[in-house]
């Protein structure tokens, strides 16, 4: 992304809460970050994880619990949630990283289902009720996050920092090696790269950032619930990434905005939303496999 693009994104982000209901904006940003983190894995490493909800939801629970029970500040809560997701990502990664394709998807799914079970049964999670009444608290001890704009700009700052991190990672030598592995793993091995370790690193990074998104969401909505860890959430993030365009930097953001926006705007028409999202997905897979951003970029490049 060049400087103009960055400035546009930042200006839009700063002005957004005056045009859109701030809490909706925060939800969009949380899912956008989740999708970006997921894209780091699917789009740049070619690994399809079907268990990312475990990191997203797991971090939400840990963060929610930390600020509720230990009375930590929101930032500490998010950091602890993020760290937890990173650790969990390491465990998942070590167990799953040697598997390929479908097997990788399935073992991450199975592990995530186990996390789901733990979130249901552990004494501190509130079972089916989830964690409720998580306090938003004071950022740095003096910024009151109960004020919508304060909360929004905090979320926006978190999003931009993580987004910048992903951008750096993708454009670093590490990102280049990842792409090389995705394109031709055998070749990368023969070039002397320790492929498994690089993949594992990507996995842990992706899990960590997914955790940041989940932890932030639990502060914004003041809850952590089983929905966040269910396999449907894992499916939804795949959807967002694909619709927006995997392997593109902005694609997951666009995808998340589209899907969450659709769900929000069309919530009055009941489960037709599911039908519409399903159809969108089918059309994307059949016609726009590069996703919205991917296809647009291609058209753009072609026309010049």
């Amino acid at each position: 992304m060049n400087r103009i693009a960055w400035i546009t994104v930042i200006v839009l982000g700063l002005l957004a809460p005056f045009a859109v209901y701030p809490v909706l904006m925060m939800e969009l940003l949380c899912f956008a970050l989740f999708a970006c983190a997921f894209n780091l894995l699917l789009g740049y490493s070619g690994l399809l994880s079907f268990g990312h909800a475990a990191f997203f939801g797991g971090a939400a629970y840990i963060c929610g619990y930390a600020v509720t029970a230990w009375h930590l500040g929101p930032l500490q809560g998010i950091l602890i949630g993020t760290a937890f997701a990173g650790g969990l990502g390491l465990v998942f990664g070590v167990l799953a990283i040697r598997r390929q394709g479908i097997y990788f998807a399935m073992i991450t799914l199975a592990l995530a289902q186990i996390i789901f079970f733990l979130c249901l049964k552990m004494p501190f999670t509130g079972g089916e009720d989830g964690l409720q009444g998580v306090p938003r608290g004071m950022l740095f001890g003096f910024i009151d996050l109960n004020k919508p704009l304060n909360m929004y700009y905090t979320v926006f700052a978190i999003f931009m920092i993580c987004f910048w991190l992903i951008w750096r990672a993708v454009n670093s030598p590490f990102g280049q090696v990842l792409s090389a592995i995705r394109e031709n793993e055998a070749r990368a091995i023969s070039l002397g790269y320790s492929v498994e370790r690089i993949k594992l690193l990507a996995f842990v990074l992706s899990a960590t950032l997914a955790g940041t998104a989940g932890a932030t969401k639990s502060i914004v909505f003041q809850t952590a619930s089983l929905t966040d860890v269910s396999w449907h959430t894992s499916g939804e993030v795949i959807l967002m990434t694909l619709v927006g365009g995997m392997g593109t930097l902005l694609g997951p953001v666009v995808g998340a905005f589209t899907i969450v926006g659709l769900q929000h705007e069309l919530s009055s028409i009941g489960s037709w939303v599911t039908v519409i999202i399903g159809l969108t997905f089918i059309v994307c897979v059949l016609v726009f496999r590069r996703g919205m951003v991917g296809e647009l970029t291609r058209l753009w490049k072609r026309s010049f």
């Binding site: 909505f221 809850t223 619930s225 929905t227 919530s267 009055s268």
Partner: peptide
């Protein structure tokens, strides 16, 4: 509105 039996959706 529909809360879909989800506490987070309902409170949102």
């Amino acid at each position: 509105a529909d809360h879909q039996n989800k506490a987070d959706v309902g409170s949102a």
